[in-house]
Nucleic acid binder design. Sequence first.
RNA 1: GCGCCGGUAGCUCAGUGGAUAGAGCGUCGGCCUCCGGAGCCGAAGGUCGCAGGUUCGAAUCCUGUCCGGCGCGCCA
Length: 549
Amino acid sequence: MPTLREQLREAVAEARRSATAAGALDLPADLPSVSIERPARSEHGDFATNAAMQLAPLARMAPLRIAEALTSHLQLPDGVAAAEIAPPGFINFRLNSAWVAGQVETLLAEGARFGRAPVPDPQRINVEFVSANPTGPLTIGNARGAFVGDVLCRVLEAVGHAVTREYYFNDYNEQIRNLGLSLLAIRRAEPIPDDGYHGEYVNELVAQVPEELWPRAEAPDADPGEVLGRWASERVRAGIEASLARLGVRFDVWTSEGAIHAAGWVERGIARLREAGFIYEEGGAVWFRSTAFGDDKDRVVIRSNGRPTYFAADIGYVAEKFSRGFDELIYVWGEDHHGTVARNRAAAIALGFDADQVRWPLIAWVRFIRDGVEIPMSKRSGEFITLDELLDEIGTDGARWYFSSRAYTTGIDLDMTLAASQSNENPVYYVQYAHARCASILRTAAERSIAADAADTRSLLVHPAEQALVRHLLTLPDVVADAASRRETHDIPRFCHEAAHLFSQFYRDCRVLSDDVALSRARLALVDATRLVLANALDLMGIGAPDTM
RNA sequence: GCGCCGGUAGCUCAGUGGAUAGAGCGUCGGCCUCCGGAGCCGAAGGUCGCAGGUUCGAAUCCUGUCCGGCGCGCCA
C-alpha cells in the first residue's frame, strides 16, 4: 500500500490528465513530477502541492484558476477529507481525523515493518566505507564515515535494497613495510625511520610480537619490513574490527588491494581500457586518458619502473565489484579524496558502466577541538585520538546521534570538552527517554490489567495532541523513502526528536490510564504505536531503544 | 592559479524554488496531589557572508566577489 503522500501525488497527476482531457486545462503531455510537501504551518493542512503554480507558465493561466480546475477533477484518496485552494495557488489537503486515528491499528499491525517502505525496483548495492589502512587504530577521524556509511546501509536495506558492506584495505604498498620497520627499530632501540610510525600503539605492537617472529624477521635473507609489517597489519586489522564491533558496525566483505592484484583484476582492467582505446604510453609510463571523461589531466596507471599505481588498483577493483553483480557502487570517502573522484568515475565509464551506477558521497571534515584548540591528527606521528577514546567520552549512542544528525557535506567542529560535559544533554537521550516512558506506561497498564486495544481508536483519539502525534508517526515511511532515495539519512534523527516531542505533549495533555476504560485502551494503543515507531526509527540509526533508563 | 565543499540565531547545525527561515545547546521567566521532570510552557536572539541576475515567488538556481576547509604526485 503506497503511503498517503504517494497516493496524493498520483491523484494530482491524474487530475492534471483528466482536467486536460475535459478541456479545462491546456497542458503538454510532458509534465514535471508532482511535488507533495508537508506545510510548516498547520493551518495550511497536512499536505500541500504547488502543482497549480508550477503549471501556470505551461497552461498560460492564473495559478488560482488552475488550482480550481485541478481540484474539481481530483479524486481524493481515502483518508483525505478536503482539498482547499489558497493564494497564490497552493492546494492544501486536510486529513480525515477519524481515518488518522484509525491508522493506529494499521501501524501496530505492521509492527517492526512499519517505516520500511519498499521501493518498486530493489537494487544490489555495494557500500564501501571506513577502509582505513591497517597501519594504526581507527581514529576519531574515521568515526564519521563509519556512522554515515552504516546508517546509509541500514536505510537502503529498509527500503528493500540488497546491501553489501565492504571494507577495502591497502596491504600492497610501502606503508605496511614502514610499519614493520618501525617495529624493528624500536626493538633494536634505533631511531624510527623517516617514513616510519610513531606513537604508543606502535610500542604496544612491539611488545605483542610473538618471540618466534623476531628471528624470522632478522634472518640474513629475510625482509624484516615485510615479515613484521604483515604480522602488525593483521594485528591492527583485528583491532579495527573490534572497534567497529563496539560501534555496532559490521562488514560483509573485507577486500585487500593485494588480493585485487593477485587475482589479475588490475591487468584485466587496464586491458579493457586499452581495448576501448583509452590507454597510451608516454615517458616510459602507461597512462589512462581520463581527460576524455572530464578529468583535469590523464593519469598514470603503470609507472615507468613497471609498478602499478594505487589508481590502477582502483580500476581493477571497480571491475571486480561489478563482476559480483552489483547494480550500484557507493564509495563513502573522506572529502580529502575528492581529487580522485573524477579519475575513478572516468574509469568506471570507460569500462562500460553507467555514470549513475557509481557514487562517491564525500564525508566532510570533522575538526576536533579541545579547550578551543584543534586537536592535531596524524597516524604516522602518533598524534591522534582513537575512536575508542571518543566512545568513552560521549558514548556510542551519543556519537551515533551526533554524526547522524548532520548532512555529510557539512564540515563540523566537535568540541570534545563540550561534548563530554554535555553528553547528558544529547538529544538522543530525549528520544530514548520517550521510548522508555512509553514502555513504562505499558508496564503500569499491565500491572493494572488494562490491555491496549486499537479497534475503536477512530472514534476515541480525537484530542489535538493525539491527532498531531499520529499524523507525525505516519510520516516515517516517507522520511525513510526520501532518505534512501537521496542517499542522505540525516532527516531520521529529526523525525525521532519531533516524535518524542509530540509524545511529550500528548503525555501532558492526555491522561492515558484513567477511569474511562475504553479511552485508556485506545490511548494505550497509541502509546504502543509511539514506542514501536521510535524503536523502528532508532534502529535505522543503530541506536538502542531502552525500556528503562 | 585551478578545482571541490562550506559560510543561516551567542555556539553546533537543519532547511528537496513556495506560505510568517527552524531545532538542539546556552540565556531569561514560569509549571510538579496523579501514568517516569532526562519533561512541559513562554521570552529574548537573524541585513541567511556581500553584490548583481533569473522567477509570480530565492537561504535554495545563475554570475561575480570575500572568508574558511580540502585537493591539485610516476604518494596512498
